[in-house]
Amino acid sequence: MDHKFAIETHQMTKVYGSGNTEVIAMHDATMNVERGEVVALLGPSGAGKSTFLTAIGLINPPTSGQIFIGGQLILDGPQSHTNLRTFRKQHIGFVFQKANLIPFLTAIENVQVALEINGNSPRAARKEALALMDYLGVADRANGLPNTLSGGQQQRVAVARALANKPSVILADEPTAALDGHRGRQVMELFAQVAHERGAGVVVVTHDHRALDVFDTIYEMEDGAMGPKKRQSDLMPSH
């Protein structure tokens, strides 16, 4: 996947229900995320951010519109052009509001399982998982169960799992909501680091305006509509 854009969406619309119960959760949403670009997606509750994120995460296909990942058409409306689960496994990493770790697996096993799912041997997966946890600064808690880790540590483990298969796309849904400001910023900076060092396109849905300076680009959604792309440089006060 050498295409310039990690993610491209064209006029995505998502409609729930029909007739009198029809709700348009998202309409004509278009976004381009370059490789190595960190994008913040802002908007009030009910604006359609999560709908957009789950659509580009190939979990909740749009009613219409296209999704390209790495230049490859993946979804044309609800019509998929590839095996979505396999594609997700190989190309997309997810981080959620809550760390969403599997409670019966240790921290390292939570990362290891993602690698094993992608065909790595248990030994290679464990080695790679430990390297990732070291990269994210949680290697010392590798054998702890999720409920013994702090919120920040859990979120780092979740990021490690998202990075496990070297995805070209990382999607995060309010990843700092359960963290204090300092730790929240650390996680945002981590996304920026990963995007820049690994060339992944990162989309983060957030309400946390304190760390917006970390992002390269900002989109805002309102009433299901995607606002224009704003570069960080455009937001900086002019001298």
Binding site: I102, I117, N118
Partner: peptide, 12 residues
């Protein structure tokens, strides 16, 4: 929830 998560990360 764990099963949904496993499906999300691509578990067969």
């Amino acid at each position: 929830h764990s099963i949904a998560l496993l499906k999300l990360i691509g578990a067969p």
